[in-house]
Write a protein that binds this DNA or RNA. Structure first.
Lengths: 129, 129
DNA sequence: GCTTGACTTGGAGTGCGCTCGAGGTGATAG
DNA sequence: CTATCACCTCGAGCGCACTCCAAGTCAAGC
């Protein structure tokens, strides 16, 4: 698979794919004799994983570290697991935060639904709470 | 309340508070005769709302628009409500995405828990899936 | 009256995560 | 054989959301 194929498959630009490889967010991709990237299933798996983690807000730094550990082999299994658990915690925290914001947003929309925002005082001085 | 008080209250730096006001993310804050910001309850409400929405990933652009509409008065109520509903949709989408990523992360951690990652093949060629 | 210190502004600088451009190479079509 | 075209690298540039800095002002304490 060429870089263009992969970029279409996962919705990332070729530039982004090259960038990810350059910084070690994915391991080196196999090349043809001519030096052209030839993504195999393994490389695609890494791309997909990173797209998924990035879209959830996981910091690139943590992911680079994870890849580096993976490439070091067996003895880093425990470390990798700990890293994933730490990231899970952070992800859960972010989701809890978002849920609070969503509740808040829903309450605000309810306000509009019930016409509470029509009270003159609220509009005149811009008070929203 | 001074800008420092407010910054402590909400965990935003004074610079960020000034920045928010400058770009219209919050309406102009009342000033003392000397020109020093003197946050009232209303201003604090805006700060808190924006902190909440920003932390949930709502784009600054949308929030600036919301503030601008609010400052225009009654006739923008419907528009503001539509804006909030659109943002809610986007927030829900982001949360659904995150949930998928979290599920994926959990599956990966389970893999480590069950020692699946010890299979030589997986480690040798870096395959993670 | 003078010092101190928190505030003010406008503008420049920073870090992250891409994104683009220049200049070059290799494989296929005509 | 040449042209085209997708790929390559390296390095610079960009947009967002702050963050910092320089230079100035005001208000309270000595």
């Amino acid at each position: 698979m060429t870089i263009t194929d992969v970029s279409k498959k996962y919705g990332l630009t070729p530039d982004t794919l090259r960038y990810y490889e350059r910084i070690g967010l994915i391991p080196p991709v196999p090349r043809t004799k001519g030096g052209v990237r030839d993504y195999d299933e393994n490389s695609c798996g890494w791309v997909e994983l990173m797209k998924c983690m990035r879209s959830a807000g996981v910091q690139i730094e943590a992911l680079i570290e994870y890849v580096a550990l993976s490439r070091q082999g067996d003895e880093t299994v425990a470390e990798r697991k700990a890293l994933l658990i730490e990231q899970r915690k952070q992800m859960e925290d972010r989701m809890a935060e978002m849920q609070k914001s969503l509740d808040r947003l829903n309450a605000k929309i309810d306000g509009y639904e019930q016409g509470l925002m029509k009270r003159e005082r609220i509009l005149r001085d811009g008070m929203e709470e």
